[in-house]
Amino acid sequence: MADERTAEIAVSGAEDRAFGLAEPAGIGLLWAIALGALGTAWFFPLHLALAADILILALFALSLDLVLGFAGIVSLGHAAFFGTGAYVAGLLALAGWREPLSGLLAAGVVAGLLGLVASFLLLRGRDLSRLMVTLGLGMMLHEAANKAAWLTGGADGLQGIRIDPIAGLFAFDLFGRTAFFYSLSVTLLAVALLVRLATSPFGLALRAIRANALRARLLGIDVERHLVIAHGLGAGLAGIAGGLLAQTTQFVSLDVLAFQRSAEVLLVLLLGGAGNLWGAVVGAVVFKLAHETLASITVHYWTFWLGAMLVVLVLFASDGMTGLARQLAHRMRRRAGARRAPGS
């Protein structure tokens, strides 16, 4: 316990404000997701497939936020765990285990274990070498899945996956209703867990390590243990996101392990802002909606406009959208303060 209390001290009050991570903010995120999602279901009942897609991407980005935003481990291969989860869920269903909840749990556990093992590789070296190791790990898994065609179906993917109705009641439908509410429930649970984690002594210790690993170590925090656990948890959550995708689309292909997916989720997180949970969700929503809107306007050149948008965003908001929002709020507060000052 002692090391965790010291960790609380290590994260100074100033930094706490900078992260904006008091518990009410986290609860607010839960409410925002729930209300936003229910609003979507009410007003856009024909857009639920897209909404489910956004939720899964948000969950995937949240898992990376735990690894990158909290533990400070730079990763270019996070899709390795997402894909592992997807294949575990898909293969279980193909083998006859069609109950979705336990299948999803299995996906999370296997990906989490893989994450734990992989984390020992990540303890050595710093950012650049971690980038290389995660990139290599992702590519190795992708090629392994391609080679193991007898198990994974190779480039053709896993077909004929059937999933039982959730709790024996809700069958997966063409409108994506079940997929949507299923993804929503899982995402809300995950956010609740992450909010709890972020404000726990463990979460504070993680942030201390991210701020300055050497100082955190001097304060008595077991840096290695914290990083291993955080990476394992992040990998597990990514596996659950992958499992969700496999179960709701009832198909798994090599794309789930592709480098593009790792890059995309990193982009989403940076777009939203890392290290505060809000960013992952905001980033996923903005990225997917921008993608959809641009692709519907210009089906050939949307990638160009999306790229332009990202460049502009990075120029003006290097901390992502949540960073920009915080800056604006801060400036407004200062202006309000200045206006009040002369009169008082």
């Binding site: 897609d53 995708l245 592709a258």
Partner: peptide, 16 residues
């Protein structure tokens, strides 16, 4: 060129 994207688009073309 991504399978799950293609699937969702086909789904949306049908239902929406």
């Amino acid at each position: 060129g991504v399978a799950d994207t293609g699937r969702r688009l086909a789904q949306e073309l049908v239902v929406r």
